[in-house]
Design a binder for these strands. Structure first.
Lengths: 234, 234
DNA sequence: CAGGAAATTGACGATTTTGTGACAGGTCAC
DNA sequence: GTGACCTGTCACAAAATCGTCAATTTCCTG
């Protein structure tokens, strides 16, 4: 399982050590010495995973993580943070901020590789970038547009991702927790009812273009997108 | 988000400490002092999550994790392992064994709770969600739909679960007590007569699609779902 | 065929779940 | 700055479902 990994670490010795080990494990490593550089690289290269030292000169690792999570395009990239012993406060903050895992220095190469493997493995299979068409709706991730026939549908970022996920996994019922995992990310701590609100906003956006009834409520379970009617009439 | 958590830890003081903290966070905690006991409890109670100390007398935590992963029924239960600093070998083995996360002692209550929340959230959807087909009926847990031929059947959540159970255990008579255990859960306290009412509602939903007679009453014993006619002799 | 236990049925208040509108922060482009 | 979005949470309204009861009906026993 080779992966493109961005290593953000200001201390050259440690940087070298880690890079060498990851290289030996078959990963391709790109390095950055500060958060600003790292941010640029992430945007340009979209690595599979970011190894992020929490203590950095200038912009902190926490701040960088926050920014990566805030950006639509980089939100899905797993982050493993590197912390020094005793920075426990940061661990909690980091996990809540959206880090997928953390490792306390000093750590062994084997451990690091195992962690990376675990994080990569459990990352949800990414939705494709291919346009999706279903019922009277068409959605194109590349252009970020949704159309109902000829008429365009305007959606906020979250609603777009929600609809995208539902359209790529139609018919199946998704619990609110699953939707939070898949659409918001498994590291975000948000109330389950928030899903309801976004479903409502999505419905509100779809209704004027004649696509109401597409998103169905399955009481006690969650929501489902289906071209079939929820119940047969009469 | 309350959960049933099995805590496997041999040291009473730590056990007590953790249990107290989890209880305060709203979780229900069951404790085990060794792996053998833990294994039995998991099979009986199917907890939502297992907190597993890696170092145990007798069967090791690793071995227990392996067994839980090997068993179909317990495979999906998330495991968070507790390790002492320096048991680095175990960490690697544990992650490769399928532990969902691990925490290094000593850890803060906040961290533990945050981890548990994260793991519970990303728990994969149930694996045994295969569609069931029987007689003229088909039921699909994934889409939460029931069809009699082409015609859909509308059911409430409880009726759906009841039908699902009956369809996966057909031709067998289930007492009201058994149905309460299996469909409602063995912890709820409801009148046995309630089963009758739901059976009636289920029958009422099935009758208009020509599936009456599917659920049969066995006087004095309970109910049975059968594709065969209720009585042979006229 | 009568007596009585067991099961069906219709009704209903209570509870749980979902839909909605409003709102306080936060972000981003000007 | 500032003004137009977005977002996540509430509180409350609306709706669906649940469990129970009591009245009836069904079915076995003797």
């Amino acid at each position: 399982m080779a992966a493109n990994i961005l290593l953000v670490e200001d201390e050259p010795a440690i940087q070298e050590l880690i890079a060498a080990n990851l290289g030996r494990a078959g990963h391709h490593v790109v390095r950055a010495g500060d958060a600003e550089t790292a941010q640029r690289i992430v945007r340009d290269a979209l690595p599979d995973l970011v190894l992020l030292d929490w203590m950095l000169p200038g912009m902190s690792g926490i701040e960088l993580a926050r920014r990566l999570r805030a950006d639509e395009r980089t939100r899905g990239i797993p982050i493993i943070m590197l912390t020094a012993r005793g920075e426990e406060q940061d661990k909690v903050a980091g996990l809540e901020m959206g880090a997928d895992d953390y490792i306390t220095k000093p750590f062994s190469p084997r451990e690091l590789v195992a962690r990376i493997k675990a994080v990569l493995r459990r990352r949800a299979p990414q939705a494709t970038e291919d346009p999706v068409q279903l019922g009277g709706l068409s959605l194109d991730p590349a252009t970020h547009r949704v159309n109902a026939g000829e008429r365009p549908v305007v959606l906020g970022p979250t609603e777009f991702r929600l609809l995208h996920f539902l359209m790529t996994h139609p018919e199946r019922v998704h619990s609110r927790a699953q939707l939070l995992d898949q659409v918001w990310g498994d590291h975000v701590f948000v109330e389950e009812r928030t899903v309801d609100v976004h479903v409502r906003r999505l419905r509100a956006a779809l209704e004027p273009v004649g696509q109401d009834g597409l998103i169905q409520t399955v009481r006690g379970s969650g929501y489902r997108l289906s071209a079939l009617p929820a119940v047969a009439g009469v």
